[in-house]
């Protein structure tokens, strides 16, 4: 776990997504891959949106990625109302999907598109962790 200054709201877990969140509590980023067409699936779900197969398997992702886009949010809302400034970003995982996340452990203004980042896990205290990214 890296040091964290951002809020860690507890995600709403359901039976379909429980394996994902259980793994985050152990510091693992799990993704699903379609066993028929090999497409990596995001967000994890019951079927493959590329070919409609329901034959999908969990696997552990590398946790590596690059910043696809980012913004320095200067006015947060809800859980984040006192968190600004913070970086909201899409990170393109090495496995393909682009995921919404935060970039942490850096000066917000230093983030750039194309920057290499790696996953960090911020415990929610409720059996799950939020997968954020820091400069690699």
């Amino acid at each position: 776990m890296s040091e964290n200054s951002l809020p860690t709201p507890t995600p709403k877990v359901n039976p379909e997504t429980k394996p994902f969140w259980d793994a985050t509590a152990e510091g693992k980023l799990l993704l699903k891959r379609c066993n028929q067409c090999q497409t990596v699936i995001w967000y994890p779900r019951f079927l493959c949106p590329a070919c409609a197969s329901t034959d999908t398997l969990w696997f552990e992702a590398s946790g590596e990625g690059v910043v696809y886009s980012y913004t320095v949010t200067r006015r947060g809302q809800g859980h984040y109302w006192q968190a600004a400034p913070y970086v909201l970003a899409y990170v393109e995982l090495a496995e393909g999907p682009r995921v919404l996340t935060n970039i942490v452990d850096c000066v917000p203004e230093s983030v750039a598109i194309g920057q290499k980042v790696e996953a960090v896990f911020h415990d929610t205290g409720e059996g799950s962790a939020l997968v954020r990214f820091r400069p690699a």
Binding site: K12, N14, Y70, T71, R75, Y86
Partner: peptide, 23 residues
């Protein structure tokens, strides 16, 4: 269904449009 994977990171309406503008 996507909510839990995104809402926890503090997206705002403006933030989501800003991501598009930045790209």
């Amino acid at each position: 269904p996507e909510g839990a994977f995104e809402n926890v990171f503090g997206p705002t309406v403006l933030g989501m449009y800003a991501l598009a503008a930045q790209r």
